[in-house]
Measured scan of single mutants.
Amino acid sequence: LRGKKKEELLKQLDDLKVELSQLRVAKVTGGAASKLSKIRVVRKSIARVLTVINQ
């Protein structure tokens, strides 16, 4: 992550946020259990990207 440019990080952040919103919709509509663990992974990925951006 640290080797990427800021523009790439921001694009990745947008993609992750879109994916997270889709997973939340799937959870509300009764999605599979595998998607519940994926939510945690995506949230941590967002946190990692934000950490690198803010450093």
Rank of each mutant, 00 (worst) to 15 (best):
L1P: 02
L1S: 09
L1G: 13
L1I: 00
L1M: 11
R2G: 09
R2C: 07
R2E: 05
R2F: 15
R2A: 06
G3P: 05
G3R: 08
K4Y: 06
K4R: 05
K4N: 06
K4H: 06
K4V: 08
K5D: 01
K5Q: 01
K5P: 07
K5T: 07
K5C: 13
K6D: 00
K6H: 00
K6T: 05
K6C: 01
K6W: 13
K6G: 03
K6P: 01
K6A: 07
E7C: 04
E7Y: 09
E7L: 14
E7F: 14
E7T: 07
E7R: 12
E7V: 09
E7H: 11
E7K: 10
E7W: 13
E7N: 06
E8V: 10
E8T: 13
E8I: 10
E8G: 14
E8F: 11
E8P: 05
E8L: 14
E8Y: 13
E8D: 11
E8N: 05
L9A: 04
L9P: 05
L9I: 07
L9T: 02
L9C: 03
L9E: 06
L9M: 13
L9Q: 01
L9R: 02
L10Q: 04
L10V: 05
L10Y: 05
L10R: 07
L10W: 10
K11D: 02
K11F: 01
K11G: 03
K11L: 01
K11I: 01
Q12K: 13
Q12T: 14
Q12R: 13
Q12Y: 12
Q12F: 15
L13G: 05
L13T: 03
L13F: 12
L13R: 02
L13W: 08
L13I: 08
L13P: 03
L13M: 07
L13S: 05
L13D: 03
L13N: 03
D14V: 11
D14L: 13
D14R: 15
D14Q: 15
D14H: 11
D14F: 12
D14I: 14
D15F: 09
D15P: 01
D15A: 14
D15C: 14
L16N: 02
L16C: 05
L16K: 05
L16V: 01
K17F: 07
K17I: 06
K17C: 02
K17N: 02
V18L: 10
V18Y: 12
V18C: 15
V18I: 13
V18S: 10
V18M: 13
V18E: 11
E19G: 14
E19C: 14
E19P: 05
E19T: 12
E19H: 12
E19N: 13
E19V: 15
E19F: 13
L20T: 04
L20W: 10
L20S: 06
L20A: 03
L20M: 06
L20Q: 03
L20C: 02
L20F: 04
S21N: 08
S21Y: 04
S21W: 04
S21C: 10
Q22F: 03
Q22A: 02
Q22Y: 01
Q22W: 06
Q22K: 09
Q22I: 03
L23A: 05
L23K: 10
L23M: 09
L23C: 10
L23V: 03
L23F: 08
L23D: 06
V25T: 04
V25K: 08
V25Y: 04
V25L: 11
V25M: 12
V25R: 08
V25I: 13
A26S: 11
A26N: 05
A26M: 11
A26H: 06
A26V: 14
K27M: 03
K27V: 04
K27R: 09
K27H: 04
K27S: 07
K27W: 03
K27Y: 02
K27Q: 03
K27P: 02
K27E: 09
V28T: 09
V28G: 04
V28Q: 02
V28C: 07
V28D: 06
V28E: 05
V28A: 05
T29Y: 09
T29Q: 02
T29A: 14
T29M: 15
T29H: 06
G30D: 05
G30R: 15
G30N: 05
G31V: 12
G31F: 15
G31L: 14
G31T: 12
G31D: 09
G31E: 08
G31I: 12
G31M: 13
A32C: 13
A32W: 13
A32Y: 07
A32G: 03
A32V: 13
A33E: 04
A33R: 11
A33M: 14
A33G: 05
A33H: 02
A33Q: 04
A33S: 06
A33I: 13
A33C: 12
A33T: 05
S34Y: 05
S34G: 08
S34H: 11
S34M: 09
S34P: 03
K35R: 08
K35C: 14
L36P: 01
L36M: 07
L36A: 03
L36C: 01
L36H: 02
L36W: 07
L36D: 02
S37Y: 05
S37C: 13
S37D: 04
S37Q: 09
K38C: 03
K38D: 01
K38W: 05
K38R: 08
K38H: 04
K38Y: 05
K38E: 04
K38A: 05
I39A: 04
I39V: 08
I39K: 00
I39H: 01
I39L: 13
I39R: 00
I39E: 01
I39Y: 03
I39G: 01
R40G: 09
R40T: 07
R40W: 10
V41S: 10
V41A: 09
V42K: 00
V42C: 03
V42M: 07
V42E: 00
V42S: 06
V42Q: 00
V42H: 01
V42P: 02
V42W: 11
V42F: 09
R43F: 12
R43Q: 08
R43N: 04
R43T: 12
R43S: 10
R43H: 10
R43E: 01
K44R: 11
K44E: 04
K44H: 05
K44W: 02
S45H: 13
S45N: 07
S45V: 09
S45Q: 10
S45P: 06
S45W: 14
S45M: 09
I46E: 00
I46R: 00
I46M: 04
I46S: 00
I46A: 02
I46L: 10
I46D: 00
I46C: 04
A47V: 04
A47H: 10
A47C: 12
A47Y: 04
A47L: 05
A47N: 06
A47T: 12
A47E: 10
A47S: 12
R48M: 01
R48G: 05
R48S: 06
R48N: 07
V49K: 00
V49N: 00
V49P: 00
V49R: 00
L50H: 04
L50W: 12
L50Y: 07
L50M: 09
L50K: 05
L50V: 07
L50P: 00
L50S: 02
L50R: 02
T51I: 02
T51K: 10
T51E: 12
T51D: 10
T51P: 00
T51W: 04
T51Y: 09
T51C: 07
T51N: 09
T51F: 07
V52H: 06
V52I: 11
V52E: 04
V52A: 08
V52G: 09
V52F: 12
I53G: 00
I53Q: 00
I53R: 00
I53Y: 00
I53K: 00
I53T: 01
I53N: 00
N54C: 12
N54K: 13
N54Y: 12
N54Q: 08
N54W: 10
N54L: 12
Q55V: 02
Q55D: 10
Q55A: 04
Q55I: 12
Q55R: 06
